[in-house]
Amino acid sequence: MSDLLELLVSATASGCVYGLVALAYLLVLRPTGVVNFASGEWAMMGAFAAYVLAGMLEVPTVVAIPGAVLVLAVIGWATEWFTVRPLVERGAGHLAPILALLGMLVIYHQATLLVFGGENYPLDGPFGFNRVELGPFAGTSQSFFIIVMTAVIFVAVWLFFERTVWGKSFEAVAINRRAAALMGINLRLVTALSFAGGAAVAAMAGLLDGPRGSVEVNAALPFAVQGFSALIIGGINRVEGAILGGIILAFAEDLTRRYVPIPSGLALGVTPVLLIAFLLVRPTGLLRAKEAG
């Protein structure tokens, strides 16, 4: 029982990381219809940006975290500007931006590899890894930090979409681009901001996860797969789906590894099995599009 309580905090924190990557996918997917597998690279690059700022330049964490997020937001913005927009404006088909972004994935990966090599770099969390107890729940201070930051981000994004006219406009673009444009919504701006926001959120995932294991280029692919799986599980229609999918995935993984009596190598299959199950049985994900009223 105490094992379970101990696991809950850690698994929730892992789920938060997955959820943030899923949110990065979602932010780009909704208004543009593009599944951006480079989200994983963005997470990895966010961790490296934090490492450069905090680890190399020795900038305090309170500056390094927003700094790294800003760097990735700019990278996301530039990606839309230089690779996606020219294609869309020249009327390229729906597949073209997806392929262009896969190309960017390779470029991000190789560029980071060129600068940092395949090595692992340490990233310090702001509060270290002390044991923190919250009632019956125990976890590291980093796990609690991940959970709190993720909650703040999701609440902020949710409020933005639910409570602001701008947020509604983003949604309107997702629903009907043409009508949205005729309502005075700047499609270019919304698209660029979606990419910037997606990259910023992915960066948070990377830099929150970094202190646990370390920062490395190879982390990108797992981020991309886990985030995509969380997205499919939670559904692409609602912001809450991303975090729900992330937490379900992390719990499925950790509880299987801990309690299901199969060789631990086989527990690897949890993610693909969940992914396939959802794609077959409930391709819309757990959360359907919102029913108003």
Binding site: K168, A172, I175, N176, A179, L182, M183, G184, N237, K290
Partner: peptide
């Protein structure tokens, strides 16, 4: 649209999935 020229469509084009109030709010974007 931002200059104040707004239109309705020959075929209705609401933002499906949103409420009436939300649709009207999107119109206020500019």
């Amino acid at each position: 649209a931002a200059r104040g020229i707004m239109r309705t469509f020959q075929h209705n084009m609401p933002f499906e999935g949103m409420s009436v109030a939300e649709n009207v709010m999107v119109g206020a974007q500019t």
